[in-house]
Design a protein around this nucleic acid. Sequence first.
DNA 1: TGAATAGTGTCTTTCAGACAATATGCC
DNA 2: GGCATATTGTCTGAAAGACACTATTCA
Lengths: 224, 224
Amino acid sequence: MNPKTDLTQYDHPSVTVDVLVFAIMDDQLKVALIKRGTAPFKNSWAIPGGFVHIDESLEEAAQRELEEEAGVKSVYLEQLYTFGDPERDPRGRVITVAYYALVPDHDIPLSASTDAREARWFAVDDLPPLAFDHKEILQQALERLKSKLEYSNIAYSLLPSKFRLTELQQVYEIILGCQLDKRNFRKRMLSLGLLEATRQLDKSGAHRPAQLYRFKKRKMMIFR
Amino acid sequence: MNPKTDLTQYDHPSVTVDVLVFAIMDDQLKVALIKRGTAPFKNSWAIPGGFVHIDESLEEAAQRELEEEAGVKSVYLEQLYTFGDPERDPRGRVITVAYYALVPDHDIPLSASTDAREARWFAVDDLPPLAFDHKEILQQALERLKSKLEYSNIAYSLLPSKFRLTELQQVYEIILGCQLDKRNFRKRMLSLGLLEATRQLDKSGAHRPAQLYRFKKRKMMIFR
DNA sequence: TGAATAGTGTCTTTCAGACAATATGCC
DNA sequence: GGCATATTGTCTGAAAGACACTATTCA
């Protein structure tokens, strides 16, 4: 049986969404991947995704994937790019609209869903070979994430609602891949006026407790 | 006859590309629009676009539209965003991948192609009502254009290969919609090191001739 | 009191922005 | 010479970056 049959017989491409789910875990930026249970690329790791239903919007489809995969709702979700090379899927013409999501928690269990044998978090700088053009998609997501970190407040979406300034700085350092000066970082963050101190202290360590802050608005803002 | 029939009977969405073609003409930013010759939105103005052929990439489809519409090749072309609301086209499920193009010439004749009664340039701040969700698409393209102008060298793609600094400044002023200081503008542009003086002067006016410059690289570069 | 992290200020450099006079070529 | 545009420099304020010590809590 020709594997292309079910995808191209109508001359309409299939449309999928792929969702890159990012989180900070163990002081690393991690991405959720699934191990494919079916051909093509059976047993390869891939970005979770699926077909767009005929009556749902692209964003709804991405939300649905996100919930199936990581069980999370109301997290940061943004359309990344649409990948449509005719050769990107050996089964036939599949156009995928890639989204990326940022989840604040440090300990999200993943569920292997349809087509997936297994789901796991991978540090983005220690990845297995990926199926399809998923390496390129991931690459592009990382670039977007880095640049958006510099001129927006999306970092809030990788943090719990209250956090120490040191934690915020770690998010920046992990994603940008470089060390930042503590004094300059705090000066800059506080001068943006997007943070406010809460009345709480973090007393979790055997040392001076840290002030906890929150973002005034948990909505993406551009500052340039 | 149910107008949805031909688009949804297979449960696959249709995929189109829409291409926003921008140029500077008469000291205004203009966009190429077509007047639709068929329902829905018959006689409304719309962004030119068409179906993605089953064997061409999205970018190839956009190139093809661009050539059919404006007869231009090798101009700046960038994917903008993918619009996929299930209600965006009354005929059924149509997902469109929007691209925008920047053409350097001041006098591009447009050809009315399939489905179009007429094609015309419109100043972006004097637009007719647009079909579908095309107003939103155009809005988003303008935002992208403005922000990219600030941190990249895409302005080169709206100019001929050699140009006066004054012309370059006009491109910025027209797109950003504000006046810029001539001395500061020139200082900044020259300090970026992306421009080089040619050996030619522009002697077209009854006044002191201007030095002609060119971009060292006619490839999009980010400077941030 | 020692360990561990929190918190803070100054100086320098760089860049953006305000601002106006002179230069050159053509008619 | 008059007109029209081209070309050029200084000052000021803001923000980024380099840099090191004190403060606080807990064990």
